[in-house]
Design a protein around this nucleic acid. Structure first.
Lengths: 214, 214
DNA sequence: TTAACGTGTCACCATACAGTGACAATACGG
DNA sequence: CCGTATTGTCACTGTATGGTGACACGTTAA
């Protein structure tokens, strides 16, 4: 009657390990997410990481594929893509704000994005690829091509991406620091200000690049 | 005649250590920047880190204070603050671009900024404080208050900060990844596109918030 | 000359880590 | 029933780390 009762279940063990990765990652960060720590967290022997996942990189990879790190198109554009029918400025604002909210809901994604900036590994690598294709699709869907010149359209896309990049940066900073450039990152008031800034951007774009139907 | 010839020089040893921190940081990143590694790099016994700096945190702190991590106001605004005399849109563009260039010149600052997003420590802490006061000063100097309402002025400042945040994020990403949202981060063409995006922003702001003198 | 101090060297401890080999316990197929 | 493969446990190596105590060398002042 040893404590090996119902333990003999490989898939269950694998799942335990994958979930443990998530917890360790969220609690202690990427740095402390090694074979020993994960095995401890999962209450499982570390050798099984080597057997079932061929080591930590493999485990990280399957973890990355298992969870829903990145928002879907539906989450950003709405189930029926209502957002796309908005006029250009409001559309930009809505999309950017949706991205912001989607990311705020995913602390683990943020953790990994932060680590992406510091070191490469299988997980950050694959996540980067996913995001690239994701953003390409989204840009196409959102189709910020007004009646203006194609160069201006390109610039507008670049500007939108730049702002999204800024949002991501602020989200990352918010995890450890309370303000940035006078913007408060902890309370809702700060994020409201950011929202207004984005609205201002939308208005500015409307003026410089009037929509063809307008 | 032991190899203790001219080695007995505390200040020189301290300097060696501080410089070694910079090299290790740039080459191996923050993660590998421990007592052993730095001592090895400096060809100095690690115990001296404890004696002279009371441990690694102290050494990191003095390193942070020693180097010119952050650009000066002059570097951004020009020696005679010519930039301030530009019309609002161009002013914004010029300042943001100057910040971009100043940061591109400081790879070590970028490394540390990346680590700031991942973990706190004395170095990142003090650097964050420096940057906050720096950005406050700069915002005041640049004085983006047009004839529009004070709320809009606030929003404009927030938007500018958001864009700067985006630039910083792209700079950090450029170190490990070649593109972001379709923006190429390696060649100059990509950065040109970003520049045009910023110009577009400046134009947009001009329209929404006309200057009082205009 | 001698005693105290600053500087640097060395050996050592405890700890944590990644990774591996040997073995016990259980399940499964013949 | 027995043999084999799977699952899990355990003990171990080697290496790296942060940190400390003891000592050797050189300088300086009494």
């Amino acid at each position: 009657m040893t404590p090996a009762d119902t333990n003999r279940d490989r898939s269950k063990t694998e799942q335990k390990l994958v979930e443990a990765v998530g917890r360790v990652l969220a609690r202690d960060g990427f740095e402390r997410c090694g074979v020993n720590a994960v095995a401890r967290e999962a209450k499982v022997d570390k050798v099984l990481i080597y057997r079932y996942f061929a080591g930590m990189p493999g485990l990280l990879k399957t973890y990355g594929e298992s969870s829903n790190f990145w928002p879907t198109q539906a989450e950003i554009l709405g189930e029926e893509r209502q957002v796309l029918r908005l006029p250009q400025g409001e559309r930009l604002e809505a999309i950017v704000m949706a991205i912001l909210e989607a990311l705020r809901k995913r602390p683990q994604t943020l953790t990994i994005m932060a680590w992406e900036l510091v070191q490469r590994n299988p997980l950050t690598e694959s996540l980067a690829q996913v995001r690239e294709s994701w953003s390409r699709e989204l840009t196409q869907e959102a189709s910020l091509h007004p009646g203006a010149s194609p160069e201006q359209a390109e610039d507008a896309v670049a500007l939108a991406n730049l702002v999204v990049a800024g949002l991501q940066y602020l989200l990352l900073r918010a995890r450890t620091v309370s303000e940035y450039g006078g913007l408060s990152l902890q309370d809702d008031a700060g994020w409201q200000r950011i929202r207004r800034a984005i609205r201002l951007l939308g208005q500015g774009l409307e003026n410089v690049m009037p929509e063809d139907t307008a």
